[in-house]
Design a protein around this nucleic acid. Structure first.
Lengths: 339, 339
DNA sequence: CCGAGTGATGTGAGCGTTCACATTCCGAGC
DNA sequence: GCTCGGAATGTGAACGCTCACATCACTCGG
């Protein structure tokens, strides 16, 4: 092996030697430092090209103490909501010049989230976004490593940490009001799982509207977001079809299950029962009938949370903000006036 | 400011001083080196705890040249398939002791993928998984940085890079054969977008079965995976309802659109037309009627690809393997024998 | 009772950058 | 021609860890 049998990728010193400058000048070129002669710059660029040099961001991170990487802790990113949120976050982070390191948890207990944040901290992320849609997960934000910038998405009352979320209560209000406006005496509700903050918010908004209007508040049918749980709720609703005329279902997947159950039992939607969902998944428009629902702007959630996180990283101090993204009502064919 | 006004997080030397050992002994404890006296170990552990020390993986990565981070290049992780694949990859990677850094591209041209891999390389990932469902994206694997271990998922003919994919052709065969077995004269096909390898595979399998059985091969109706494109295809199929009795739709979302269009036009499924989808998204079981479809095991795809990647990282050499995950036929209510 | 062997620990260098500071260069101004 | 100042460049020391090697303290067989 001669001295040229180097297998290691070229480093800054190699570029410097080839260009006939010091490693520091190479660094300056790479970092767009103003005080470099144009001719020197081109010579360095040429050498970089010649050697196929790529800078080593790990070494840079060691000295700057900034990795330009953000951590994302998420949960079951197969569900449409979390998946879209994570996608939005990733897009926004990259636009802001950050990499994204993701940990998706299967179960979402506090310890799991704390561990995940710990791993990310060791890995040197500059900040974390925690998608913590459940109470228990949100609590993990209380034991953040000192000085770690963080943002909670859909995270409820998260202590010192700023929160970005879609206004669930408002969405539920829109849905429920729409049904009351159509002349329905009251509105039934198929809820999400108990521990989820989004589920709580939706139930709360629904209840608030009914109470404010002086309408009876029917018993809540509990679901777990899955189409199957909606199907079960739908069967129960069908059995009460003489009393039920309008239902607000806490997400579109469950609404699909409800629709299916009602169809099986011969209950017509929207003629006999009106249905409103939540999320506006891409499928909703093609349900039978097309689903009236509430759209959440996940892209906006991602952008806002990254913006908040980056501002914290730059300022050093924590921000006590609470950003709310408004939901949007989408009218389709699953609701009709009470005849 | 006294000398104790340190704001910086503790480093290994701090732990060493407190425990009364050398930094190297601390390192040994952290890395489970066998030759450390039990008492020393506990003393070090105590010091670590006392200071709230966390090791700095960036510094470690600099010297070991391994970041224990894998890069994932994906594309629109909002679609059910890509989202599930990425989730499976992330789970498998973490189980294997790796972090995952994700780049999701909006558009999937070759340059974009090449750039993404380049960024990940600078960032020091030990290997990359490229979810490259399109021909153009798959081609980016030809210009990988030298010595970068890589695996393509759903990636077609990807040069030197091992590929893991679900057997699309076989899935399409299962779907088409099922329909022929029910007595249908031939099977129509709503395809995915042209550039997608998965779409090609599904069309190929469908065509192969028809040809082998000596049946007429109808014109392909082109879709783009979206429910809307399925809806448009459904309208056209409804217009030919006298000739069409069976349709294989290249994914479940489009199948939903087809279903919707047929329902609107008063065509009964499965009495007049039988439909088979592909993917088995969670919603399929609750379509009206519940959709007969082909299930893909995305978890298995994730595990296999990480396994392949980790083996490459450990062995140093590239592996020329090609792993195929079998699809599964799921019978539901959207198909029936030709009367 | 001594030297070899093994386990436990310490020492210093180096990973590839950037930072702080030192040095050199060059033209303007007197 | 000489000084001065800012632009352009170079030098050496970190950053926090692991690696290779050195050292030290024992145990054990002859």
């Amino acid at each position: 092996m001669g001295p040229n049998a180097e297998q290691r990728p070229p480093v800054m010193a190699d570029v410097a030697k080839l260009a006939g400058v010091s490693h520091q000048t190479v660094s300056r070129v790479l970092n767009d430092h103003p005080n470099v002669r144009a001719e020197t710059r081109t010579r360095v660029m040429w050498a970089i090209d010649e050697l196929g040099y790529r800078r080593n961001l790990v070494a840079r991170a060691l000295v700057t103490r900034h990795s330009r990487t953000l951590g994302v802790v998420s949960f079951d990113s197969t569900l449409y909501g979390p998946a879209s949120t994570v996608y939005g976050i990733e897009q926004a982070a990259r636009a802001a010049g950050y990499f994204v390191s993701i940990v998706s948890l299967r179960t979402i207990d506090r310890a799991g989230v704390t561990d995940a944040i710990g791993y990310l901290a060791e890995q040197g992320v500059d900040g974390v976004v925690v998608v913590a849609p459940q109470r228990s997960a949100a609590r993990a934000l209380d034991d953040l490593p000192a000085g770690m910038p963080a943002v909670a998405v859909e995270g409820g009352h998260a202590g010192d940490v700023p929160v970005v979320s879609v206004d669930q209560v408002e969405g539920a209000r829109l849905a429920t009001l729409h049904l009351l406006d159509l002349g329905h005496e009251t509105v039934w509700h198929v809820s999400g799982p108990a521990d989820w903050l989004e589920a709580e918010g939706r139930t709360e908004g629904w209840r608030a509207v009914l109470t404010a209007a002086g309408r009876p508040v029917p018993e809540v049918l509990a679901g777990d977001w899955s189409p199957r749980s909606g199907y079960r709720a739908g069967k129960r609703l069908a059995a009460m079809a003489d009393r039920v005329t309008a239902v607000f279902v806490a997400n579109d997947q469950m609404a699909l299950g409800v629709l299916r159950a009602l169809t099986e039992e011969g209950v017509k939607v929207p003629e006999q029962i009106s249905i409103v969902g939540f999320d506006d998944i891409p499928e909703s428009e093609f349900f039978s009938p097309p689903l009236t629902t509430i759209r959440q702007d996940f892209g906006a959630v991602g952008r806002r949370s990254i913006d908040l996180l980056v501002r914290q990283i730059q300022s050093g101090g924590p921000l006590h903000e609470r950003l709310v993204v408004p939901p949007q009502f989408i009218a389709r064919a699953s609701t009709s006036p009470l005849r």
